[in-house]
Design a protein around this nucleic acid. Structure first.
Length: 702
DNA sequence: GCACCTCGAGTTCA
DNA sequence: CTCGAGGTGC
């Protein structure tokens, strides 16, 4: 029996606990607290949890103690980012830093003042995206490959510096990005503990943070005591906060206001010239920081300018990381092996004694090609220096020649494909016999007067397996295909298994797999078979550009596939395209157009496409831009524009639904002529194509 | 013909 | 991430 008196007491205690926890949390946001405080914090939370388990009526879904939500998971859900998570380009010296700005200024001819930058530390951790709805933390996802990450919401809830409720819980939605890290002190304690338990230690904080967040049981993550620094707002909906979004520095201000921990060393500088001294200052205090960093990040502070510069590949032009040199180690090369790629490229791999570098144990590294091996003068048995590029991919830096014993063996490229035994060849570029081919080149004897770039026009550096039926090549193709279709359930191992079991002979067979095909296989059950079949069914629909990419046409990657899709619109038109029409597209030249053209001339390829469609693949129509006032129009740009770069003009035209071609033909709608326009202008006049000067063009954009 | 910028393709470990 | 190679502007 519970008296109402007693209940009141308990309610009071709950309130007291909550306010004390909130106070500690507040203090935590503003400064680093000693570990003792962590323990007090935890014991308060524990008491509160105990009371709430007995008296659920005092529970409050929004309260901060709800740090642990639920049971261990089976696996993490893959989630597509609403806004792609980009990476950041690197520089390693002041010269490169200045070159970076110079490149940007070239793209901003209209700019008439100095660029301001916001500089901050580059945390050594894991990039994370957090979504808040109506002030409440609803989802957290890892960066993954930038497009797709893993939902680790449960684990992120255990991080104290991630607010579950924002300090200003506005009615709307916000996506915050930042870095999950493990402080040095915490890492030290964790490693001491690991050592006692006979587990291998984490060699750096990034690995520790990554490993901790990948725990399926959130209680384990909680023990790891991670932290989170916020540094970016990817989107805000439902509240008028434009002024915070105008500058990167303002975003930081808002993040702090909302209760996030932000980098307190970060500061705005009035010009690029100030950045080197900032980097210097940080280098000096690097070791004394309570967390690991691997460099300094500089953003163009003005969001408009930042965005107008756009993105190259995966890196926005307006942001750059100054990185500290990577850790190095030495090891001995035991062997050189050969990998077979999707296109048949044979890639040599150095196999060496397992060596610990920058946090993980590495036992192999790609050597890219034979030329690289010769450049390094690498032999089997050599002692080499390795590092991890970007702290991830192992790289052979150099050979220590003074360690040679004379027993080292030179490596010779294999004569037969290690996977299928077919002849190995050094293929002509583009895989087509060109009439200008001048026969084999004699190694080590450069033709007089022949330049390096000329040489590469004749034969590629790589060696190839030319067998179209090579098993290894086909496996790599299947992997490429499912990744283009985003069928995540089918990894390399499963694909191989299906192939070995005779369930599939080509990629099109994937779409006719049934539950009954898969379930009887060892280590597959009803449930997993059903998941796979369902996933495949869900992914049958694909955008035209992804479809083109999935075909694996030589020289056609994601970007070129997109260009082809926007220019031709439908598969029928692409199939029928003349080689000249393909070649006309901006950024597509001879090698690519030949490759695309002959792909669609090949009966086998056409049959494969037909089989895909018969088996249920649906190609989505290329979306016509709603406000596409340039729909159906083809532009050709020539000369120099004063207000914007060509690249950016091109992006504008495409965003309005138009196309950009590289040369003038009768299909051209407009030629935009800037200063010093040349032959394209003459051609346009000859064909009677409408010519726009820069002003007329800018007016059309309005 | 050269210099530059992008893109494609292959890649490591936990 | 890295290197090679394609494409384009000067």
């Amino acid at each position: 029996m519970q008296s109402s008196e007693n209940k009141k007491e308990i309610q009071k205690r709950v309130q007291k606990l909550r306010s004390e926890i909130a106070r500690l949390r507040e203090a935590y946001h503003t400064k680093n607290l000693p570990n003792v405080t962590d323990d007090i914090y935890d014991s308060l939370n524990k008491e509160l949890k105990n009371i709430l388990s007995k008296y659920p009526e005092f529970d409050d879904q929004n309260s901060f103690e709800n740090r642990i939500a639920g049971k261990p998971l089976d696996k993490f859900e893959k989630v597509k980012h609403e806004i792609k998570m980009f990476s950041i380009g690197n520089v390693f010296s002041d010269e490169e830093l200045f070159a970076w700005e110079k490149r940007n200024l070239k793209l901003l001819p209209g700019l008439n003042s100095n660029l301001e930058y916001f500089c901050e530390l580059k945390f050594d951790g894991l990039a994370i995206s957090l979504i808040y709805e109506n002030g409440k933390f609803v989802r957290g996802v890892t960066r993954g490959d930038g497009n797709i990450g893993e939902d680790i919401t449960q684990n992120l809830k255990t991080i104290k510096s991630i607010p579950l409720i924002l300090k200003d819980p506005f009615p709307g939605r916000i996506e915050v990005r930042g870095e999950a890290i493990m402080k040095k002190e915490v890492l030290k304690r964790l490693n001491e503990k690991n050592e006692k338990e006979g587990k291998p230690p984490f060699a750096n904080s990034r690995n520790a943070a990554a490993g901790s967040l990948r725990q399926l049981d959130p209680n384990l993550t909680k023990e790891r005591r991670l932290d989170f620094f916020a540094y970016e707002i990817a989107q805000i909906k439902g509240v008028e906060w434009e002024k915070y979004l105008e500058k990167h520095s303002k975003k930081h201000e808002l993040l702090q206001k909302l209760g996030f921990m932000v980098d307190e060393h970060a500061r705005k500088v009035s010009s690029l010239k100030e950045i080197p001294s900032f980097i210097n200052k940080i280098s000096k205090i690097r070791d004394s920081l309570s967390f690991g960093i691997d460099g300094v990040v500089s953003n163009i502070d003005d969001t408009k300018i930042f965005e107008s510069l756009g993105i190259i590949g995966k890196d926005p032009r307006g942001i750059i990381a100054f990185k500290y040199p990577a850790e190095r180690a030495t090891t001995i090369v035991k062997d050189i092996k050969i990998n077979v790629g999707r296109t048949g490229v044979l890639t040599p791999l150095a196999i060496f004694n397992p060596t610990s570098v920058a946090g993980s144990t590495v036992s192999k590294a790609t050597l890219h090609n034979m030329d690289q091996i010769e450049r390094l003068d690498l032999r089997i048995g050599d002692t080499i220096v390795i590092e991890k590029a970007g702290d991830v991919i192992p790289k052979v830096v150099e050979v220590l020649f003074n360690m040679r014993t004379g027993k080292e063996k030179k490596f010779k490229m294999v004569l037969k494909c290690p996977a299928c035994g077919a002849e190995v060849e050094k293929r002509n570029i583009g895989s087509f016999q060109s009439s200008s081919s001048k026969g084999p080149r004699i190694p080590g004897a450069p033709n007089p007067g022949q330049t390096i770039s000329h040489r590469t026009l004749e034969t590629s550096v790589a060696f190839y397996c030319a067998n179209p039926k090579c098993g290894a090549k086909n496996e790599r193709y299947l992997e490429h295909f499912v990744s283009a279709f985003e069928i995540y359930e089918l990894g390399p191992k499963i694909l191989r298994r299906f192939k070995d079991e005779g369930l599939i002979t080509d990629a099109a067979d994937i779409f006719t797999l049934t539950k009954e095909d898969i379930a009887p296989l060892e280590r597959f059950g009803e449930k997993s078979a059903e998941n796979i079949v369902q996933e495949i069914k869900n992914k049958r629909k694909i955008s035209f550009s992804k479809f083109i990419w999935a075909l694996g046409i030589l020289h056609v990657g994601e970007e070129t596939a997109r260009d082809l899709a926007t220019n031709f619109g439908t598969l029928e038109k692409l199939k029928k395209a003349k080689i000249e029409e393909i070649n006309e597209i901006d950024n597509i030249g001879g090698a690519v157009s030949r490759s695309v053209y002959s792909f669609f001339k090949d009966k086998n390829n056409l049959n494969f496409i037909e089989k895909l469609q018969k088996n249920g693949v649906i190609i989505e129509k290329v979306e016509k831009k709603k406000n596409g006032k340039f729909n159906g129009l083809i532009f050709v740009l020539t000369g120099t524009l004063s207000q914007m770069s060509r690249e950016i003009a091109k992006e504008k035209i495409i965003s309005l639904g138009g196309k950009v071609a590289s040369s003038v033909s009768k299909n051209t709608s407009y030629v935009v002529a800037g200063e010093e326009a040349g032959s394209k202008l003459t051609q346009a006049k000859k064909l009677g194509i409408k010519i726009l000067n820069e002003k007329e063009f800018l007016d059309m954009l309005q």
